[in-house]
């Protein structure tokens, strides 16, 4: 290749790189800000219901130097990302997984900040008779029997999310294993997608109440209805932790945020969230029930 050909190519390369650098500078000018960013890995159910944006909107109003970046994934992935130090705080609802990460020293500063309930959903005509069950384990056993007889389907998240972990725990308590059965479908997707699939198929499923109410209100669900819920066995506890791999600066912001979550301002915000919009509260604040919730958390963590 001749000198001029090389020069032309070099010129093209240099100009492309210059353009890319200029674009990225413009980008940082437009979108960057001086506030410190606090990364929070969180479960999809907290994020998709809008609760976290609502809380951080209020938090950032009184703490203008911090911007909270949410990374919404399943509880299993959220804990793993915090364990690697890629997120400084983690908001999850899977006590048995949380316990493992706590014991291995990846996360600390446990704060319970909210709770609600899981619900067993199914078609209105309830072919398995879940409505008559006296507890969640019996309800699952009825679904298993109906499934084996070809009268019912069950849709599972199958993604190691908090909801999936709880579902597997209930199956475990029945002493029956639905895996591999042709009536047991694992979606591997978020709660919302799983609800839609269960609804389309006229199947049973386990959901957190928040996602269900949101989908129900938006008219996405046609056959699914709440067949069983219970305030003790199906309690769903949301906890916040800091990662032990945070930098010291992040740790300060992270601790401040999770302490704020447990404080009176955030607790009353959680109590008010969705009032007037939904027929039932989406989340209940943990304040005033901490000891009860800690006990329930211990029981769930020990499976």
């Amino acid at each position: 290749m001749g000198i001029t050909g090389r020069k032309a190519i070099l010129f093209v390369i240099v100009s492309l790189i210059v353009v890319a650098v200029i674009l990225s500078i413009v980008y940082t000018q437009l979108y960057g800000s001086s506030a410190t960013r606090l990364r929070a890995a969180t479960t999809t159910s907290l994020y998709a219901t809008g609760l976290l944006d609502y809380l951080s909107h209020h938090y950032e109003a009184s703490h203008p130097n911090v911007v909270i970046d949410y990374i919404a994934v399943g509880s299993g992935e959220a804990l793993e990302r915090a364990a690697r130090g890629d997120a400084c705080i983690v908001l999850v609802h899977a006590p048995s997984l949380e316990k493992r990460y706590l014991e291995e020293g990846y996360i600390s500063n446990h704060v319970i900040f909210a709770y609600n309930y899981f619900v067993i959903l199914g078609p209105k005509d309830d072919p398995a008779g879940v409505r008559d069950a006296s507890n969640a384990v019996e309800a699952f056993r009825k679904i298993y029997i109906a499934g084996e007889e070809g009268r019912a389907l069950f849709v599972s998240r199958g993604d190691r999310s908090g909801t999936n972990v709880r579902e597997l725990m209930i199956w475990n308590m029945t002493g029956l294993d639905p895996h591999g059965k042709d009536w047991y479908l694992e979606t591997g997707q978020g709660m919302g997608e799983t609800l839609v699939i269960a609804d389309e198929k006229g199947a049973y499923t386990l959901s957190d109440i928040g996602t269900y109410l949101k989908y129900e209100l938006e008219g996405r669900l046609h056959t699914l209805t709440v067949l069983y819920t219970n305030s003790t066995e199906l309690i769903n506890i949301y906890s916040a932790y800091t990662s032990t791999r945070c930098s010291s600066e992040e740790m300060g912001d992270g601790l401040q945020f999770i302490e704020w979550l447990a404080g009176s301002e955030a607790q009353s915000l959680i109590a008010e969230y969705g009032r007037g919009e939904y027929p039932h509260p989406l989340f209940y604040p943990a304040a005033g029930k901490i000891e009860y919730l800690q006990e329930a958390w211990r029981i769930l963590a020990n499976g």
């Binding site: 998709a48 970046d69 949410y70 919404a72 709660m191 919302g192 997608e193 609800l195 996405r220």
Partner: peptide
Amino acid sequence: GGNIAGLTRTMTTSIALYTSMGEY
């Protein structure tokens, strides 16, 4: 990217998020 609002949220990650929120 992590689909962080105001920082790394792109069209495709928003589509995934809206789908998971049921806002088809």
